[in-house]
Design a protein around this nucleic acid. Sequence first.
DNA 1: CTGTTAGCGCCTTCAC
DNA 2: GTGAAGGCGCTAACAG
Lengths: 352, 352
Amino acid sequence: MASVNLKRLAQELNLSISTVSRALSDSYEVSQETKDRVRALAQQLNYEPNPYASSLRRQRSKTIGVVIPEVANNFFSLAINGIEEIARYNGYHVLIYLTHDDYSRELSIAQHLASGRADGILMSVASESLDFSHLDILKTKNVPLVFFDRVCEEIATANVTTDDYDSGYKATEHLISVGCRSIAYLLVSSNLSIGQKRMQGYLDALRDHGLAADADLVVNGGNEHEQNVALIKALLQRRPDIDGLFASVESLAMSSYQACQDLQLSIPQDIKIISFSNLEIAALLGPSLTTITQPAYDIGKEAAKILFQAITKNRPVLPSHSVELKSELIVRGSTTVAYKPTPTANQPTEAS
Amino acid sequence: MASVNLKRLAQELNLSISTVSRALSDSYEVSQETKDRVRALAQQLNYEPNPYASSLRRQRSKTIGVVIPEVANNFFSLAINGIEEIARYNGYHVLIYLTHDDYSRELSIAQHLASGRADGILMSVASESLDFSHLDILKTKNVPLVFFDRVCEEIATANVTTDDYDSGYKATEHLISVGCRSIAYLLVSSNLSIGQKRMQGYLDALRDHGLAADADLVVNGGNEHEQNVALIKALLQRRPDIDGLFASVESLAMSSYQACQDLQLSIPQDIKIISFSNLEIAALLGPSLTTITQPAYDIGKEAAKILFQAITKNRPVLPSHSVELKSELIVRGSTTVAYKPTPTANQPTEAS
DNA sequence: CTGTTAGCGCCTTCAC
DNA sequence: GTGAAGGCGCTAACAG
């Protein structure tokens, strides 16, 4: 298949390659007539500029990389939607990389992205990551980087987060207000800042309401559902006084349900559960689950906007560009909660 | 920032660019000593080959494009996981494009992808698409294309689907077996082949069990939740005899729930609902929802494998490469259903 | 075993 | 208004 490129167009039109190139980029120094001729043929032959040649020449790829633990998770799915929206609006392409919360993957992905494949990177760090030197090379190569949700405090850049502390506080307060006196906190990885901030809110809420914090009530889970279920079951058997569970991530809410089911504990009669979650179907669970919903779509959008600010204006991403969005506590049962459909792309938001 | 490229390495080592290039690609015609020297410096300077230069030169981008309606949907999220897994295993990168079920977006995405940006494309067509000429240009440019889930019969290529007809049949049969006699079928877009195949299963199951098919019981929804709720409410009010709802996509199950809630109909006492769904939290809903779960992760993997077969062996994707996977009917309440965690990446599956 | 040369397709000075 | 030439960084044929 003879690919149609500038050379081909130039030959057929008896023009030079440079004139064709200029005509297609609507340069002011090309006559209207030539432009029309060029464009007509380009359309006819389905000419599409070779993006790789263009990227090589201009030293920008019109591509951003998105590095996340997993996409089979409502939060990240929604975030990607927001990211893709803004990227598209800016004429950019989106590369997806999944770490599966594995440090070595995150490392090799970061290394690769230092190649200039992407003009900027949006990232949610893997829960396993303790060492962040792999992200330093991105910094030294001047690849703009914005963290969202799972941020890395060690790297000086912009973070887009939700009000983790506040919502942790409010969630705990909610459980207290509905009568819980012995509330356990479940987190997935103690080295993720989100888990820690939410926990601080939990601890402060307990203290402010005269409840004792107890290290035994904090359970540190992992990425394995079955193991988490076992941990929670052990917790509930060890501490039959527990009447509330605060799951700091969605998957732990699942595990909690499973554990309660296995132990024949009924929700919310015996135990009340509150969780961070973006699963819309949770709305259908009725009064049994109260959730804290993060504005995932907006988080994605905001993060992308900050990144594009840096890319297009060719300036670094600064920590001062960070944004904190508000999450929403959704109490079901007492109040009716309407199903919130996924925000679809309407008019592109102004990327300013 | 002086970027580190082959030239730079060659200069520092007093070697020619080509030798350095060969050393890094572990060519047999370079001495071990030279290789070691080159690799040492490359590592020290964090050399990463410029992917765009390489793509331009080799005429292959080591990138695939994934075009889907939306990612905030458990099915596609899981599929992407599978796709990324296989892509990574093959050393490929994944570009994501979302159509939002909008024809014009799908058109422009397809047009762009004809540029050679991707070596192959995985696609689930938009529900709005009626005309598929935009996909022809991909064919004429010899870009390998594999459809998954939402296929396009008009284009001769491989499709990866689930047993839509069979599962539609079985789902209907299930409702009949639990006593339903007046079952409505909800679909999202009548021009999607999946909706039609599932419907055929539904119709045949009714017929085989001596129940009359009734055009009034088939409701054609759209992408708007609120409108779908209204449609379903109208249906239920018009036909109070309805005792079963078959939602052919997840979102319609949501709408159905909402509609029943609004009308104070209890599930599953008054009305039984069965739905295609991949939301794992659905397992927590207890006996109220029976689902047909597609092996989304495997569908993504299979589709990617077929694509890579074509790419690496440089041969066309043929309709005969199509694969049909089995979906699973999960009945809750009577049988205990364990929470199935998202399949995470273990060993990469052999891509053969 | 290593070097020289010639592009991949595009953009962009510089010349006319 | 148009053309010629150089080079982005890499690879691969051809020499030696």
